[in-house]
Write a protein that binds this DNA or RNA. Structure first.
Length: 559
RNA sequence: AGCCUCAUAGUGUAAUGGUAACACCCCGGAUUUUGAUUCCGUUAUUCUAGGUUCGAGCCCUAGUGAGGCUACCA
């Protein structure tokens, strides 16, 4: 792995260190609070690494996993499970601190009653449209509705009836009484509770009123004694409201909200709404499609979790809303895989080479290192006979100036084995090369090139007799584009629907029995992960490509 | 239009008011039984204008640019 991230403090960690130093807090408690309405993506990984990372950095500190499930219409148990799995996969542990905002519904309700009794909340009977109009706009203040001056008793009664289910959805809401003239729209008497006659994944039908995020979130944090509530930039304008609830409700602690910029990646559609659309419209096979930037997609793609975490640390935490080049992420993937992935040989686009002077006395196996820089990973023996497959692009009938591999009357080394010389080739009717004839140079295994032999490259190969077939899926980054004409539900278009290419490769025998999740490097191609393996219909492993060996190879070979 | 936030190489991130740096990308070179890795090197940076200061990327003011806010989503 490249150098560890320097122990520099980002501005949030500075605040936390300061609070610890001044004794404001004896310990630090953060939280990761996803709404279970979709799968997590790499952007969430940044938040997870921040919140859980801080907890790991201070003795006694911890990070809660809390499902912010205050909207029954969008949330599902399937998402709860996937989120837990994804956090674990990244290597973080919430211990016993697993919570659901929906478990606090009674507390939220009591706080609402408290506010009503204090004269700080009232029942609003205007429609959503009327409220919008009476709230004013960016330059003109709002105007009070009739409900704003209702008595405490009346409000209490109305709220109780609201909770009892006497009203239909939309008939009334509970609003905070703050400041209709505030320059911050969030302070213009925000809605606290709305009526939803919906089934909740956790509380079932126990409630028909549900709290809004702005109201519930500070209370959740306070209840859990969160010291630092870290969220993304779009909640900046909500902070005064967050603080207002903390000040005006009977809460057991005073958390502080701090905002940071969310992750943006080049070429990458982020955001649950867009991902949901890609899934629903069938552009991908599911939330864990390897073309998606979901955590589960990255997992299937073979990205090591350690590398994803390293990337998140490297990107850092700021309030600057930039777009990170995906090359930064892929560097970390390569960097990690380069050290951990054993080398194997495979040929994705095969051409047969016949070794004309091979005889029964010739080499029948060659010994190849599993990793060129790490002898501890050992060696393996690969059978070889008089016919091998090589990559079509490793032969040029008319070699270019900087082409070092095989061509008529040229030399190349079969990796781990002999140097061979091309002595002829045959073509199909359509002009494509279908057979190469070569001869072995005796005594060149494990030895330098003999005098007068120019051999500057070693190519990968697979023995024809013992090689196996494998399916290799090469995934491209899924390019997407905002559709300006698209209304709701149709605002994304996929630019490269052909982002998945499947080829049948020839692989060396050692790859026949790998387990799903095993990652390796096919020489000179890229890093691969064993995905689903079909042991039923004969031995047919399936590999996904993770990243190409070099970033520029992607760009040249790409779109 | 009002309020809020942000601005440092192509990208991301550093720099207590004291020599502007690190990583990625790109390009070049050396080594290499992976055109990988490793090693070395090149290019390139404080949005603008004022002010405070011996000294400003950092503090102040104004401007410019970008983003957010007028949900019974989170």
């Amino acid at each position: 792995m490249s150098d560890p991230i320097t122990p520099k403090l980002d501005f949030i960690r500075e605040i936390i260190a300061d609070d610890l130093a001044t004794g404001k807090h004896a310990t630090t408690i953060t939280r990761f609070p996803p709404e279970p309405n979709g799968y997590l993506h790499i952007g969430h990984a940044k938040s997870i690494c921040l919140n859980f990372g801080i907890a790991q950095e201070h003795p006694g500190a911890k990070c809660h996993l809390r499902f912010d499930d205050t909207n029954p219409e969008k949330e599902e148990t399937e998402y709860v499970e996937s989120i837990k799995a994804d956090v674990k996969w990244l290597g973080f542990d919430w211990g016993k601190d697993l919570y659901f905002a929906s478990d606090y519904f009674t507390f939220f309700h009591d706080c609402a009653v408290h506010l009503i009794k204090e004269g700080k909340a009232y029942i609003e009977q205007q429609s959503a449209e009327e409220m919008r109009a009476s709230r004013g706009n960016l330059t003109t203040p709002g105007t009070p509705s009739p409900g704003r001056s209702r008595s405490v008793e009346e409000n209490l009664d109305l709220f109780a009836r609201m909770k009892a289910g006497e009203f239909k959805e939309g008939e009334c809401v509970l609003r905070a009484k703050i400041d209709l003239a505030s320059s911050n729209m969030n302070m213009r008497d925000p809605v606290l509770y709305r009526i939803m006659h919906a089934h909740h994944h956790n509380t079932g039908d126990a409630w028909c009123i549900y709290p809004m995020y702005d109201f519930a979130h500070p209370l959740e944090d306070a209840l859990e004694h969160i010291t630092h509530s870290l969220c993304t930039l779009e909640f900046e304008d909500h902070r005064p409201l967050y603080d207002w609830f903390i000040e005006n409700c009977p809460v057991p602690s005073k958390p502080r909200q701090i905002e940071f910029a969310k992750l943006n990646l080049t070429y990458t559609a982020m955001g649950k709404r867009k991902l949901l659309q890609l899934v629903q419209e069938g552009h991908v096979s599911g939330w864990d499609d390897p073309r998606l930037p979901t955590i589960s997609g990255l997992r299937r793609r073979g990205y090591p979790p350690e590398a994803v975490v390293h990337f998140c640390k490297r990107v850092g935490i700021t309030k600057f809303k930039g777009t990170t080049d995906i090359a930064l992420l892929e560097f970390d993937i390569r960097d990690f895989l380069n050290q951990s992935a054993p080398r194997r040989m495979a040929v994705l686009d095969p051409v047969k080479v016949v070794l004309e002077n091979w005889s029964a006395e010739s080499l029948t196996t060659v010994e190849v290192a599993n990793h060129p820089q790490n002898p501890e990973m050992g060696n393996r023996d690969i059978p070889i006979s008089n016919e091998v497959w090589i990559e079509r692009e490793d032969f040029m009938e008319v070699p270019e100036k900087k082409f070092f591999r095989l061509g008529p009357d040229r030399y190349v080394r079969l990796k781990g084995g002999h140097i061979i010389r091309c002595i002829g080739f045959e073509k199909d009717a359509d002009g494509s090369i279908n057979l190469i004839r070569a001869e072995i140079l005796p005594g060149t295994v494990g030895a330098d090139s003999p005098e007068g032999v120019v051999c500057k490259a070693a190519i990968h190969w697979v023995d024809v007799a013992t090689g196996l077939d494998a399916e290799v899926r090469i995934y491209d980054r899924l390019f997407t584009e905002e559709d300006p004409d698209g209304a709701e539900g149709g605002f994304l278009s996929v630019i490269n629907p052909d982002s998945l290419k499947t080829v049948t490769a020839r692989i060396e025998p050692a790859l026949a029995s790998v387990e799903p999740g095993f990652s390796c490097q096919f020489d000179r191609i890229g890093y691969f992960i064993a995905d689903t393996i079909d042991h039923q219909s004969g031995v047919k492993p399936v590999f996904n490509r993770t990243v190409a060996l070099k970033d520029s190879w992607v760009k040249k070979g790409g779109r």
